[in-house]
Design a protein around this nucleic acid. Structure first.
Lengths: 195, 195, 195, 195
DNA sequence: GATGAATGAGAGTTCATTCAT
DNA sequence: GATGAATGAACTCTCATTCAT
């Protein structure tokens, strides 16, 4: 994607951070290349040295944000024994990351539905989705989770995490109240686990 | 909103359907007034007889879609006894409607996050949200649902329904397999009900 | 110009008065056919039964206003003996008319200089100009007025009347203070008369 | 007003001259931004680099023309002793300028009366008006001019100059016939001076 | 490599005019 | 004759992209 030839790596960062700030603050569609350049402290034309065009820039921003999300989501997950715990750890990671990176997580979200393309499975989010799926599938075979269509379980987990996130965005204390946080996550688990 | 003066009511429908089709197919932001007019089989200027401008048209489309959603969602809900059942009925209604009106439900969704504003509580979706909240709050006091922050329960239900919907979009059979459908919905209920 | 066939003569008046009001209030260029029709209490299309188009309507309005001006300007002028007195009477008439018909006189003025066409001599105002010219020429041959180019004398009188009018618009008392009014007019006469 | 940042100063001139030519030739209201750009030999969008929009451009053109007028009008005026002479010098200056800059002076005029607002005193022409007023007021106290309302004297002078200008436009020789020119101006002075 | 002036396609909107009812 | 919905040319303005410096 990005061509890290002899170009200044710092500029990528400046452009990226500028775009993230603006995408978050006023929406992707309402942000002009001009604004991104100005806010990055460089000239409009320079952006085109680093990115072929707006499309590539947008993709780069999304990929960057998504990559952060992805890396954060897997942290220490494999330390956990059972798949329930792995999944919980993963959810916790994502919630933490969403809170810590509100701009980046918001931007990821704004790529969900501008147009009606299929979201998770084959789309932009497939990598994250695949990881979830692996745990859930294993946990299902394992008997930890309900025997329901795997695609469904994946989707319910994915969307529930969004739900919790939305709640936390407005009630950030929940993040630091271990008990409460666990209860919130338990909600998701309770939904899919075998009783 | 719409000014049904002496203007042709059929044309409101043509414009509306044209807009819905295009908003769905290529996104709200990528659709021009010109395209909407052409696709409706009328001239560009005519659209402005029916709507003051793009903004009003967009609002009209959203309101129209949302209204459909709202009406469908409450159907027969009060026939149910307990709040768990009421909520289940409501969720079923929404899932049915989403499947029956894929364009309209998709469009509603595309008004979620154009910019980073708080979504459900105070925004465009507040009416739907309030209804959910009433049931959930009652069910919570009732002991049917977990004693967790009401806002949280609302959000988890809201987002879970989105999740199921996404699944059904790609597996529409689920909608006509009563057993399966119940199991999917049970997933949401299991998450929030008192065990 | 206007075709008084079997059309309703009252409508001409309605349209005309509506146009005059709007031309005066917001300028000729800023007034739409729609506004004129609405304000006249008739339908947009009807205007086109009475006038071929905007251009013809504008011309009609101008001609109407100008005709009023013309008729008012010659009243009792020939009762006066010498050309100085005739001219003074004429000026007085115009000042009175301007005050009595502020809208109409303002509209006449707004046809002066939208584009840079030669104004008085051959243009729209030629009729009024010709009358002035006749008096002034006669008065000049007579020795009452300075022996200067006739065109010049005409123009200086014409423009001076405008000047007095402008003053009176903001100091309408002057119109009813016979002495003062005479002094104002004397100013014009003093400029062109043989001392 | 004009933002002489790093933009090409020559282009301001090109745009200005293009606009002046078109405003003069076909009227301000009938001139499009497109035409101005094309006639200036640049692209439509470029105009908007130099001016925020049509309104700013129009204001700039007016201010530019008016400034020329203003500067020309005061030249050598204070070399003259009495106020009569000062005023005469000033009038001569304006007549000269009007002849030398027919487009610019015509454009100034076309900002008089688009809508029916009071013209000289408080409006766009106030600066020029104030200067006139100072001389006339002084000359009146001085006994050089008639003891009439100052506003009136200002207006009659202002309008008379317009009258002479109109004459000269069609008889440009008058400008170079010192004797005649003096006689024309004397006409104005004779009107307002104490006999 | 960096710049930002220049470009022009294309967006939303207005309005004089037409014409079926 | 009267209507006003329909039309589409034309307007102002924006912005992704290019390219000479």
């Amino acid at each position: 994607m990005a061509r890290y030839s002899a170009l200044d790596p710092e500029k990528y960062i400046k452009i990226r951070d500028s775009a993230i700030l603006l995408f978050f603050g006023q929406g992707v569609e309402n942000t002009t290349m001009q604004q991104i350049a100005k806010n990055a402290g460089i000239a409009k034309g320079t952006v085109y040295l680093y990115f072929k065009g707006r499309e590539e820039l947008e993709k780069y921003i999304f990929d960057y944000c998504f990559d952060l999300h992805l890396k954060a989501s897997v942290k220490d997950v494999d330390d956990e024994k059972c798949f329930t715990e792995k999944l919980k750890k993963r959810i916790k990671n994502i919630l933490m990351w969403n809170a810590e990176f509100p701009k980046e997580s918001s931007i990821i979200r704004s790529f969900y539905t501008p147009v009606n393309y299929s979201d998770t499975e084959d789309g932009l989010f497939s990598k994250s989705y695949e990881i979830n799926r692996a745990y859930i599938e294993a946990g299902m075979k394992n008997g930890e989770f309900k025997n329901l269509p795997i695609e469904f379980l994946c989707k319910i987990v994915f969307s529930s995490v969004e739900g919790i996130s939305t709640y936390i965005k407005q009630n950030s204390d929940a993040l630091y109240d271990e008990d409460l946080l666990n209860q919130l996550i338990e909600t998701v688990i309770d939904g899919i686990k075998n009783h």
